[in-house]
């Protein structure tokens, strides 16, 4: 067993998110709304050498099984991420993140004169395009640096 496998398989119950784009793990946590105050054990390995990605991050979230819907939004910043659901130290389910058709409340619109950035009671919503995302209100297309437009947690 390689050292890498040890690192990702050692939790008893929970979710292991592997193959996260190097350096994006804190953004992944922010999208998932996990900040450590929930009390569950959380481990992060950042910039681990990876054959496929060069550098990757690995997250282990104990005692929480993330749903496909929850993890699909991660595809926007970590398109190669794999999700391992662990029970009794065994990976019982392994899946790739898939691009959702739209995301709500995850990103804010980069257009400062968009109606969603003016204190109206609406949640920013983006349609997901083959490359990038598009504000469902003003139509602005966002392709690069999506992580810079993550909505501030409220």
């Amino acid at each position: 067993m390689t050292e890498h496998e040890l690192r990702v398989s050692k939790i008893e119950n929970g979710t292991v998110i592997d193959h996260v784009t190097g350096g994006q793990s804190l953004n992944v946590l922010s999208i998932l709304g996990i900040d450590g105050t929930e009390g569950s054990v959380l481990s992060i390995a950042m910039n681990v050498p990876s054959g496929r990605l060069g550098r990757k991050d690995i997250l282990k979230i104990e005692d929480r099984e993330l749903s496909q819907e929850e993890v699909d939004v991660l595809s926007l910043i970590a398109p190669e991420a794999t999700i391992n659901i662990v029970r009794d130290f065994e990976v019982i389910e392994k899946s790739r993140v898939e691009r959702p058709s739209h995301v709500r409340g995850i990103l804010s619109c980069p257009n400062h004169s968009c109606i969603t950035s003016s204190g109206e009671p609406v949640t920013p919503k983006f349609d997901v395009l083959p490359t990038g995302v598009r504000c469902a209100y003003c139509g602005t297309i966002l392709r690069e640096n999506l992580a810079e437009h993550l909505a501030k947690p409220s």
């Binding site: 619109c109 257009n111 004169s113 968009c114 109606i115 609406v122 504000c135 209100y137 139509g139 602005t140």
Partner: peptide, 10 residues
Amino acid sequence: RHPREGAARM
């Protein structure tokens, strides 16, 4: 009519 983009959609 509104000065912000997306106003009517919203």
